[in-house]
């Protein structure tokens, strides 16, 4: 089993503790000039989101998590599950609503997403940074008002609502940043 020595510790490292995968979100090196070096780490559980404090001595090691990232397209939603298909192996993966979290707002059929697998099981997914969605309902557009600082809620084809500028109309295609949920621009195609 692969493992990481303290000299390899850094933010973003994916490790395994008591069978659960964790990501190192902080690693602070402390050492008295003539004394024992310590690595004070914060680790977030990738399944539960809980955060652990752990201190390691120089030379200690942690087991590496069997983490793999795949590209998969979104197929469909079935009740509380979201079904994706690995683009290379055609294998299908089911993620729970909890694992998909807020990303459901962006999911359209055949959208290519990245899925994190732990020991071959999906644990989380990330949509592309930018998605194009179709506005299905909003208050009528204010003609000539090109201001972007005044917003109104627009319901899109995934069922989610995003604040958009006043000039947006029903049927418009809008580009959204999935990392922030912010409107970027109106697009043609």
């Amino acid at each position: 089993m692969a493992s990481y020595n303290t000299s390899e510790f850094k933010k973003g490292l994916k490790v395994q503790l008591d069978g659960d995968p964790y990501i190192m979100i902080e690693c602070n090196f402390v050492k008295p000039g003539k004394g024992q070096a310590l690595y004070k780490c914060k680790l977030r559980n990738l399944l539960r989101g809980t955060v652990l404090d752990r201190t390691y001595k120089s030379g200690d090691s942690i087991e590496a998590a069997e983490i793999e990232e795949i590209q998969a397209q979104f197929l469909y939603r079935q009740a509380d599950h979201f079904v994706f298909m690995d683009n290379e192996s055609y294998e299908q993966y089911e993620l729970t609503a909890e694992q998909v979290d807020d990303a459901w707002k962006y999911l359209k059929e055949s959208m290519l997403c990245s899925i994190i697998l732990h020991n071959g099981q999906p644990i989380s997914m990330t949509p592309p940074n930018h998605v194009v969605l179709k506005v299905e309902y909003c208050e009528p557009g204010a003609k000539g008002n090109t201001a972007t600082n005044v917003t109104k809620p627009c319901k899109v084809d995934t069922g989610a609502e995003f604040p958009c500028p006043a000039f947006i109309n029903m049927g418009d295609l809008i580009k959204i940043d999935t990392r922030t949920g912010a409107y970027i621009e109106r697009v043609k195609e």
Partner: peptide
């Protein structure tokens, strides 16, 4: 000394 270093830090 390991314990002392930890308490010191």
């Amino acid at each position: 000394d390991g314990w002392l270093d930890l308490l010191l830090v």
